[in-house]
């Protein structure tokens, strides 16, 4: 994923807190994935307006971690979601 690209959750895909399992899940029609704390933190920044570069910069400040590491891990994470149609990207 390039820094200028804008990740966005497609219609019908949303974050949901599962009170039974006490975990965050990403729900899509008839499908779901579970998220860990970092995955939830990444998706919480996805608003369909800010670019991948802006999001990873914010996460680097929030986690006090190198932005290069954040970009690498986030790109893999969001790429995996995109491949399974849990995420769209606009540019």
């Amino acid at each position: 994923m390039e820094a200028e690209e804008i990740p966005v959750l497609p219609r019908g895909v949303r974050l949901h807190y599962d009170h039974i399992r006490e975990i965050w899940v990403l729900l899509a029609p008839e499908r779901a994935v579970t998220l860990d704390a970092v995955g939830h933190a990444i998706l919480s920044e996805v608003d369909g307006e800010r670019s991948f570069g802006e999001i990873t910069q914010k996460l680097a400040e929030k986690f006090n971690a190198p932005v290069d590491l954040i970009m690498q891990d986030s790109a893999g994470f969001l790429g995996a979601l995109r491949a399974r149609r849990f995420l769209d990207v606009s540019s």
Partner: peptide, 21 residues
């Protein structure tokens, strides 16, 4: 709030690891 490589598990019928360390 420590950064770790994020993990995704897809729920099918069971949790199946989809991405992560």
């Amino acid at each position: 709030m420590a950064w770790n490589k994020p993990v995704i598990r897809e729920i099918e019928c069971m949790e199946i690891n989809m991405y992560g360390p």
